[in-house]
């Protein structure tokens, strides 16, 4: 089987002397959605940050389209076509929605109008609020701004750290719909989710992490069907 488009292989590392990740592997194919679930403190966000280069690895490697990017800074990874939406503080609150999108496209020197139109098509509400300060929007709208900002670089991979944290179930469903739409345009999506059940439903691939290593890895459907996964991680 050919190598996945993005893979963080056998990653080991942590913030200080203590490792949080122990040989953890995450991968996502082009245009697919991979979801990382697991109990609190399992190292889900840490694994994500490791893939994005926000944490130094002591072992393992990260490859994008076959190229080893393990030593690149997060900024350099942005230039390589990766985009990251942090869990909190993921928008510029004092700037307008449109300025948030412009800042997302900061590295691009070409015309960004087309991409902006695509983002507005994806999230029509943002277009009506384009001149409003992003900090004044509701929680769900702010998440849309955050995702929109990340999409402005025209990334090949979009990484989302708990995009539905703190939003209502209706908004969550809508956000997931949008994420599926994004994936259909050929962008790979790697995301961490608390709402494991709903996330696995839309996932092509699911990773269940426990204590910094892979406990189960399978398609989203298969994981949903696995009685052990259901019992331990999906609440029955």
């Amino acid at each position: 089987m050919a190598e996945p488009f993005l893979i963080g292989e056998n990653m080991t590392g942590g913030y200080g002397a203590v490792d949080i990740l122990h040989g953890c592997t995450l991968a996502v194919e082009k245009g697919e959605i991979a979801v990382i679930v697991g109990p609190n403190g399992a190292g889900k966000s840490t694994a994500m940050k490791a893939v994005f280069g926000m944490l130094k690895l002591r072992g393992g490697a990260v490859r994008l389209a076959g190229e080893d990017i393990t030593t690149l800074t997060p900024q350099a990874r942005v230039a390589k076509g990766m985009a990251f939406v942090p869990q909190t503080q993921n928008i510029f609150t004092t700037m307008t929605v449109e300025e948030n999108l412009e800042m997302g496209a900061f590295l691009r020197r070409d015309d960004i109008k087309g991409t902006m139109a695509q983002v507005y098509d994806l999230f029509p509400i943002l277009k009506t609020k384009r001149y409003q300060a992003a900090g004044e929007l509701s929680g769900g709208q702010r998440q849309q701004v955050a995702v929109g900002r990340a999409l402005m670089t025209q990334p090949k991979v979009l990484m989302l750290d708990e995009p539905t944290a703190g939003v209502s179930p209706i908004v969550m469903d809508e956000l997931f719909d949008r994420i599926i739409e994004v994936a259909r345009t050929g962008i790979s999506i790697l995301m961490v989710e608390q709402n494991a059940r709903q996330a696995l439903e839309i996932a092509h691939k699911g990773y269940v992490l426990v204590q910094g290593s892979n406990r189960f890895t399978d398609t989203g459907q298969a994981l949903m069907a696995d009685p052990e996964v259901r019992r331990s991680f999906l609440g029955g």
Binding site: P74, Q75, V78, A79, F84, P86, Q89, N90, I91, F92, T93, T94, M95, M103, G104, F106, L107, R149, T153
Partner: peptide, 12 residues
């Protein structure tokens, strides 16, 4: 000034 980390993530 608004959000240093996010500015870095945006390539500023």
């Amino acid at each position: 000034s608004d959000n240093e980390d996010l500015a870095l993530l945006s390539g500023i």
